[in-house]
Design a protein around this nucleic acid. Structure first.
Lengths: 148, 148
DNA sequence: GTCGCAAACTTGAATGATTCATATTTAGGT
DNA sequence: ACCTAAATATGAATCATTCAAGTTTGCGAC
């Protein structure tokens, strides 16, 4: 178990809940807290929502999980933490997809002028419409132009 | 009144509350809803918080205000909407500062690979520590090295 | 100018995500 | 096996925001 080592190295106790959370987040795709909770219950049976909140906070604080908060969406988590990638978010369905970063290390971008800030991270979210929602659009919009 | 025209052009009714909100947001610095509410009450007297929420939503929807939502912070508003600038956010105090964008138009950045998304905006927030909080740090950290 | 109606505002309640508090359980060192 | 701090369960609280219903008001039509 890789996660077991990771937890220990971070000074965190190894519990079934935490292992199940890591596994759920890894197998999922930018899951929010409820989705992680559901996944964990599938693996272990009853685990409280608060335990999920507590663990996600601990795991994020220890750097084992990355947390993203797209505007208007609850927080989402992912296990890809070793590179400094960015995200694409769909305005329609909320789906989030990873995008590689060119430089790979944080902060990958430097602000033009930093106004005296000590910048350590660039949080980049590209907003648009995902392939699935785009095809729904065309299915609804093109037909109206029916032959007179 | 510039704002009056802007409102009409956007198809919105001109009300004292909305003019006061535009003024408050313009004079303020990335204010959140409560701060706007306070400011508006200072100009007009009693205005309900819900009216402020409703108006901010309408003004944002009409493109007269820009809305930013730094992770872990309530939404903030600004009147600078004609350029595509970005933001610096302080991890300590939450202060938000504008940073110019190199290209000036949205999306100023293109993702390396768009995964089929139709991207129209790049939301960029640089995280760091603002000058004020940095100097607080040094005032607390340097002194401990007092002469033995 | 005044009429009428939809838009805007007020008041009050509801929702959703997240955190706080306290008691109980458990991991893991002794 | 034992102890203690860390982790979890349970339940309540908080914060930002939205919803709902009734009242007021901007503003286009007459």
């Amino acid at each position: 178990m890789e996660d077991e080592d990771r937890l220990r190295r971070a000074g965190l106790r190894v519990t079934a809940a935490r292992l199940a959370i890591m596994r759920t987040v890894r197998e999922g795709d930018h899951l929010d807290v409820d989705a992680v909770h559901h996944g964990v219950r599938g693996h272990l049976g009853q685990v409280s929502l608060q335990a999920v909140y507590d663990s996600l906070r601990a795991l994020h604080g220890a750097g084992l999980l990355r947390r993203i908060e797209p505007a208007g969406s609850p927080a989402r988590y992912e296990t890809r933490i070793d590179d400094n990638h960015h995200h694409l978010a769909c305005r329609r369905c909320g789906k989030v997809t990873d995008v590689d970063c060119v430089t790979g290390h944080a902060p990958c971008l430097a602000p033009v002028s930093d106004a005296g800030y000590q910048v350590d991270e660039a949080d980049v979210i590209f907003w648009g419409v995902c392939p699935g929602c785009r095809s729904e659009d065309t299915r609804r919009r093109e037909p109206p132009e029916e032959p007179l």
